[in-house]
Design a protein around this nucleic acid. Structure first.
Length: 541
RNA sequence: GCUCCGGUAGCUCAGAUGGAUAGAGCAACGGAUUUCUAAUCCGUCGGUCACAGGUUCGAGUCCUGUCCGGAGUACCA
């Protein structure tokens, strides 16, 4: 419908020799203003030097609309043109949705394109916290949106097991191990105090009881890493999140990729030595200060491996690279992108999604968190308390740009009056009606007379359902996925209102069949939407 | 100081490409069920869209400045 109107009007504008640049069709908020509307006449007032109402009239008098698509149109002050869809066209679209079934909502924008989404990427020093949860769900859902748009998607987890953090972790495990063995040992300063390390130490003691304080730290480091990664992967799996690739920073050193980046930047005269360190001359690229690439200790900063890693992403042939970061990384990517640009890569392909922090609340109390001190609520604990569906929904129902207040008390209480259940209930409600119809022996197929669907609540429901594919595209274009839960919520509202006003199963068999057919379409739309969100789709509640 | 994010109803937040009377949930109050699931629906109350200018037919939305909150501004990641 939208494409049809755009084409028709654009053609007419060309005929009139008026610019079509600001031609846009939107869905009016109020049903009485039509199904589609354009303000193009008002935009042309200046160019055409005529009153908008007159312009609208001139445009419309030269167009013949197919009555099977546009039932009528009107001009409304101060110059809107409103179009009303023909019932035939609506019926046609409902049938199409049922035909498409699992495909409804998908598009082919990313057909034959490869995309990578990097998310979570927490170093394996402890279990995932409530803070990591937002990024986990955000990244996974973004990846789903890309898949629904035809991209071949790689979900990737990048981690660093080379630096100081991991050394501390190894030392902490060694201390725990020796203590368990009967040789009380103090945790190192800034060591990791979490109980999970005691568990891992206990397992290690069973498997390798012969280790001592002279054993290579590497043994403890690697054991800790493996153990903690298992915990992290288990947590993610509980939420249905599975990464295709775990990319290890160490490999960049082993393969000489770090050195390659350094020499590439050297060739561009963007590297110099100073104060015993190696610097990236970012001031030459428009930044306000230079950055250290290799510390005076000889260890690179995170920046250098990040550049090497992203270079590898490009070389792996991704057409779209999405990096999901927390707000604390907000300053780390501009110089990384600048370096890639210098190395000749098209950084337009990189989309950085920054999300603001999660503030964890217990009632009015802010819960302070520190991984090292083990003062945190783990994602696992949260999942235990409120369940996967609630966790997934809550993390993405708000814009990533907004701070998220996660009130634990509220989340726990919200097992009854919760937007997630509202959505699921809409689906279960339809399922129940369809079951009932089957019991009554009411059958229906694509030959039902859909022109019987005429009431305002019914049309509102249909129109809401028809915007689903647009919402997927919008999420893709903006990489802002909170639009989807917001949309599904309003679809559920439309369903509940319809349910309240119109009885589906009645003595009027043709009408019952038409409504059942509609509900079948609504049901699969809800299901597809919940699938994108990774939320379960109950047949009964 | 500089950079990024936010400021919309009592609270938590939606408001894409500037459009028609700024919305939802929660909270408060009042209604609806002989009927397909009341985990639902309807109504009432509630607004200086932080503030001040500007751009134009039209600004919550774009521009400039100010104020408030958060994040960053490392030879941590």
């Amino acid at each position: 419908m939208k494409n049809y109107l755009e084409k028709k009007i654009a053609a007419r504008l060309e005929e009139l020799n008026w610019p079509a640049s600001d031609l846009q069709l939107s869905r009016p908020k109020k049903a009485e203003n039509g199904d589609w509307s354009t303000s193009v006449a008002m935009g042309l007032a200046r160019v055409a030097r005529q009153a908008p109402l007159k312009i609208a009239e001139t445009i419309l008098t030269g167009i013949d609309f197919d009555p099977h698509i546009v039932s009528r149109y009107e001009i409304a002050p101060p110059g809107f043109i409103n179009f009303f869809q023909a019932p035939d066209f609506l019926a046609h679209q409902i049938r199409q949705i049922v035909d498409l079934d699992h495909q409804y909502g998908r598009n082919e924008i990313g057909k034959d394109l490869k995309a990578q989404v990097e998310f979570v990427s927490a170093n394996p020093t402890g279990p995932l916290t409530v803070g990591h949860g937002r990024q986990s769900v955000l990244g996974d859902t973004l990846a789903s949106i890309l898949e629904w748009s035809g991209y071949e998607v790689t979900r990737e987890y990048y981690f660093n097991n080379a630096g100081r953090q991991m050394r501390k972790l190894g030392e902490s495990l060694r201390a725990r191990y020796l203590t368990l063995k009967g040789e009380p040992t103090e945790l190192p300063e800034d060591g990791y105090q979490g109980a999970y390390l005691i568990e891992i130490a206990r397992e290690l003691l069973v498997q390798k009881p012969e280790l001592s304080d002279t054993t290579d730290l590497k043994v403890f480091k690697e054991y800790a890493e493996t153990g903690i990664f298992q915990i992290i992967k288990d947590t993610l799996a509980r939420m249905g999140i599975i990464h295709d690739v775990f990319y290890n920073e160490n490999s960049l050193y082993d393969d000489g990729k770090i050195e390659e980046v350094l020499s590439l930047l050297r060739q561009k005269n963007l590297v110099y030595e100073g104060d015993g360190a190696t610097w990236f001359k970012t001031t030459g690229l428009g930044f306000d200060q230079d950055r250290v690439l290799v510390k005076s200790t000889g260890e690179p900063t995170y920046r250098l491996p990040d550049m090497a890693y992203h270079r590898e992403k490009f070389k792996r042939g991704f057409d779209l690279i999405v990096d999901v970061f927390g707000a604390d990384h907000q300053d780390t990517y501009p110089d990384v992108l600048a370096a890639l640009n210098v190395m000749g890569f098209d950084t337009e392909k990189v989309k950085v999604v920054i999300h603001q922090f999660v503030t964890l609340m217990r009632g009015d109390e802010v819960v302070k968190m520190s991984t090292r001190k083990a003062e945190f609520v783990t994602l696992d604990e949260l999942l235990d308390e409120v369940g996967v569906d609630v966790v997934r929904y809550f993390y993405i129902m708000r814009s990533a740009n907004s701070h998220l207040n996660f009130d634990l008390d509220l989340a726990k209480r919200q097992t009854e009056e919760n937007p997630v259940f509202y959505l699921q209930y809409a689906h279960a409600r339809i399922a129940s009606i369809l079951r009932k119809a089957e019991e009554r022996g009411i059958t229906f197929d694509e030959t039902v007379d859909l022109s019987l669907l005429v009431e305002p609540e019914t049309l509102a429901l249909i129109n809401e359902m028809l915007t689903f594919p647009e919402m997927i595209v919008r999420c893709l274009r903006t990489l802002e996925i909170h639009h989807l839960p917001t949309y599904l919520y309003s679809l559920a509202t439309a369903l509940h209102k319809f349910y309240t006003e119109q009885r589906v199963i009645s003595e009027n068999i043709p009408l019952s069949q038409a409504r059942l057919f509609l509900l079948k379409a609504v049901k699969l739309t809800l299901r597809n939407g919940l699938e994108v969100l990774g939320i379960s789709v109950p047949e009964r509640m």
